[in-house]
Design a protein around this nucleic acid. Structure first.
Lengths: 345, 345
DNA sequence: GTGACTGCTGGAACCGGTTCCCGATGTGGC
DNA sequence: GCCACATCGGGAACCGGTTCCAGCAGTCAC
């Protein structure tokens, strides 16, 4: 474990020159630069980030706060962030923020505040005003993904529009008895997304002059969640919807599995559409509205680095909306028959 | 952003006393401790980890090297690691290590070496001898999960035995024409696991005196991978196996989906067993051999912290084997019919 | 020849903690 | 009354870099 002073000695220069040579800041002649680099290589020297960040105040480390790791959307976002950060020479420190209040406080008080990160990316987390305040008080760049937090630059799809797009697809196929199986509006964790998608769903119905009685069923955002909800919703042939707009592809796939178990043919007896562009959507022939979480992560990093480099007090509190595209597969089709009645206005 | 000196001044003590009071090391009277803590709270003081680790040499940060984020096993392991580290007051810095040689070298040269982590956890990665050497040269604790690296304490299930257990379950049900759909033995990333499971599979067959001609098909470790392999393998009714041992639950589920699409009834015409205990196994009624990746992550952290605390030169290069348990569901059943012939000896 | 300027280098201060060491005080035993 | 010992607090060195500043040589313009 050699230190800069060793390198300097071997190279026959001073610490300051060695530092300049290695970091590339300030005047160094080509000759000495080579000498220093050679010495560093010889000794296997690597800078101490602790020492460097002590004096510069920058850690080259970005904190990522995320509620889940093992769900497709979140995993993708995380991969996107990671790849971009590595590329830019930054480390990524991961904090999983559950809904457990104690743990949350702990993460905030104990970790994030510790001058250890240069910036924070918050992925699809409903932050309390107090938490937002703490993060802003850090004076570090902060970017949100997947939902907007007032006063914080963020990045997401337009959930209302996306949900409307999906629902309109079903309506255009002639469906009237449409149900939304999605996230609980009142859940703490998932941050507006649920309610936004429900709003978009309803808006499409309203615009088409359709009213549905039982128009919603909540489900966990997973295949199992969709499966359970599917079994519950599709059980009675007389009340069964002819089409379901699922809050995400995993729910949609769970519903498809449930339908198959119940002997309900897709798409002849039931159309299903999701949101995400999950790789399984192709396997299952699921029609979906595609988003690109990995890109969202990458873009967030871009935004962050922009803020980090350009220190001028220009807080770009913009909200970037990313496009989504409808991808039609075989899980949706024109309405064939109506089990009972369509409740259309 | 107050510093220790401010706290000391406000509390009316010296920096050294303030430091002792806050860190809890060394003699400090109860009175002064309270005074210092009050001053710290008042100023909203938090230590600079950079400064602290510069002098102590410890960062309270653990590096995790992992090949995938968005696959069930890896996500679970990561969650387990994260929870335990947070609990212990450590940060987690994430490095995704792809098979891309450049990126790999970059992670090793540029990041891991940078005196930035106290320890490293390597999850299911096939490290080159050179990479192992670099990590060991760091002189930091190092624990592997999911496969053993010579000379490094590690933690995993017994892949051979687990595969044998799964295969024996199929054999005990009367199956003879059994196939293994799993990972490519020669793939760089997944680190022995593939070949170990194949060995266990073959061992069970051999012990039962069974020989199978086409006994293997490789698949990506995902539902899609299993689905593609399933379509390929199950296409021809005359050569179709009566039972499949899948390398993981995701592959198994993909196969089940493929079987359904091909109109093959499970378990009447085809038995499928996996390895993992994936939450979807329950949804799909998949028989599987259960492991607990989250626990593996937690145990790894335990091991690591043990090494970090006890500095005595006792490198516990042990390999811990974790138990797995067979969980029988409805995807496996006694052999009913034999499409053509059973190739039994 | 002198002054201004550029290119380069070294000395030293500094970042913000931790810890060693020494001195002061108090307390108990003899 | 004195010594040994435990408790407590402060001064200062130190961790390993970065950066400011001063200084020096060489070049060019006048």
């Amino acid at each position: 474990m050699s230190i800069l002073a060793d390198v300097a000695r071997i190279a026959g220069v001073s610490k300051s020159t060695a530092s300049r040579a290695l970091s590339g800041r300030g005047y160094v002649s080509e000759d000495t630069r080579v000498k220093v680099e050679r010495a560093a290589a010889e000794l296997g020297y690597v800078v101490s980030t602790a020492a460097a960040s002590l004096v510069t105040g920058r850690t080259r480390n970005v904190g990522v706060v995320i509620p889940y790791i093992n769900r497709w959307y979140f995993g993708e976002v995380l991969e996107g962030i990671e790849a971009s950060l590595i590329q830019a020479g930054y480390d990524l420190t991961l904090y999983r923020l559950s809904s457990d209040a104690d743990l949350r406080r702990r993460v905030f008080d104990y970790f994030l505040v510790r001058k250890r990160v240069d910036a924070v990316i918050s992925v699809a987390i409903a932050l309390s005003p107090n938490e937002v305040h703490m993060l802003q008080a850090l004076g570090k760049p902060l970017v949100g993904i997947g939902g907007l937090i007032p006063g914080i630059p963020s990045l997401s799809i337009d959930d209302v529009e996306t949900a409307r797009l999906a629902t309109e697809h079903l309506i255009s196929l002639g469906h009237r008895r449409i149900m939304h199986v999605g996230g609980d509006q009142h859940e703490q964790m998932d941050f507006r997304v649920h309610s936004q998608r429900y709003i978009g769903f309803q808006r499409a119905l309203t615009d088409a002059g359709i009213t549905v009685e039982d128009d919603f069923r909540d489900a966990e955002f997973s295949i199992q969640g969709g499966h359970a909800a599917g079994l519950a919703v599709l059980g009675d042939p007389r009340t069964r919807p002819t089409a379901i707009f699922a809050g995400c592809d995993e729910i949609a796939i769970g519903i498809m599995v449930a339908a198959r178990q119940l002997g309900i043919a897709i798409p002849h007896e039931l159309s299903v559409i999701g949101i995400d562009g999950h790789p399984l959507a192709e396997t299952f022939g699921l029609t979906t509205v595609v988003q690109h979480p990995g890109d969202q992560g990458a873009r967030a990093v871009e935004l962050l680095l922009g803020q980090l480099d350009a220190t001028p007090e220009a807080p770009p509190s913009e909200h970037i909306v990313l496009p989504t595209t409808l991808s039609v597969r075989t899980s949706t089709a024109a309405r064939r028959e109506t089990p009972v009645t369509t409740a259309s206005a």
